[in-house]
């Protein structure tokens, strides 16, 4: 799957490229308004990551151009402005998601996955991973055909791991994704640990062929055995 990153900050661009290449995406980049316009008119992408502030123009105009060309590319706006207006404008113009800098690379993966899921699996929004079957529409998980009972947060955690399989996820990235604003205190990271412990236990008891592994005490990794 091809992903286009439109971002003028070379370091940030480089980080995203590295991370997405690990996910086996084909990554292309554009670092100015004009090169972005060129690329979107010439090629189709599964997902476009779009920075709002670009040299030579606004990302919003790029977005409008994408929609004018009737492209079905998924668009995630990436902005340094945590501004409600930008978010609303972006989403009204047809962006699929909005991500504020700074973000975790794991979060970016999760967002891209969500967008790709919505774009690709029209109708049957399910995915299989080893002996797990995940139905995104119903938010249910089955292991070897047996439903796995997860609470809302556990489900969110598992999906986040699946979006970042075999990648390291730091505790804080996970906390921010699943518990949002509630956990921004260091002592609450122990709480994440206890939550993961529960999930691991459930997976293990159901003989899941995937495993959540603790890494150095700083984060976790979902091992799929590949």
């Amino acid at each position: 799957m091809k992903i286009l990153i439109i971002e003028d900050e070379p370091d940030l661009l480089d980080n995203m490229v590295q991370s997405l290449q690990k996910e086996k995406f084909l990554v292309e980049t554009a670092d100015t308004f004009l090169s972005a316009m060129d690329k979107i008119s010439m090629y189709d992408y599964s997902c476009i990551l779009l920075d709002i502030n670009l040299p030579g123009g606004s990302g919003m105009d790029v977005l409008q151009e994408i929609k004018k060309l009737k492209k079905t590319d998924g668009v995630i706006i990436i902005s340094a402005k945590d501004s409600l207006d930008d978010k609303l404008t972006g989403l009204t113009f047809g962006a699929d998601d909005y991500l504020t800098k700074p973000f975790h690379l794991a979060e970016l993966n999760a967002r891209i996955n969500a967008v790709l899921r919505r774009k690709t699996f029209d109708g049957q929004n399910t995915v299989s991973l080893k002996n797990l079957d995940i139905n995104y529409d119903n938010r249910t998980v089955e292991i070897d055909g047996v439903p796995l009972i997860l609470n809302r947060k556990e489900y969110d955690t598992l999906i986040y791991f699946i979006s970042n399989k075999n990648r390291l996820i730091t505790k804080t990235a996970l906390a921010e994704h699943v518990w949002g604003d509630q956990t921004d205190e260091a002592d609450n990271l122990d709480f994440i640990y206890s939550q993961i412990k529960n999930l691991r236990k459930k997976l293990k008891e159901s003989n899941a062929e995937i495993e959540i592994q603790a890494v150095y005490g700083i984060g976790y990794k979902l091992l799929t055995g590949d």
């Binding site: 900050e9 370091d11 940030l12 980080n15 995203m16 590295q18 991370s19 690990k22 340094a80 945590d82 504020t100 800098k101 700074p102 973000f103 975790h104 690379l105 794991a106 990648r167 390291l168 730091t170 990235a173 890494v215 150095y216 005490g217 700083i218 984060g219």
Partner: peptide, 25 residues
């Protein structure tokens, strides 16, 4: 925001490289 994003992401990528435990910490 941007330098913070770059720094955090660079460190996240670094964490995925083989590191000693204390370095990772």
């Amino acid at each position: 925001q941007t330098p913070l994003a770059i720094s955090i992401n660079k460190l996240e990528l670094m964490l995925e490289q083989p590191l000693q435990e204390d370095q990772a910490g």
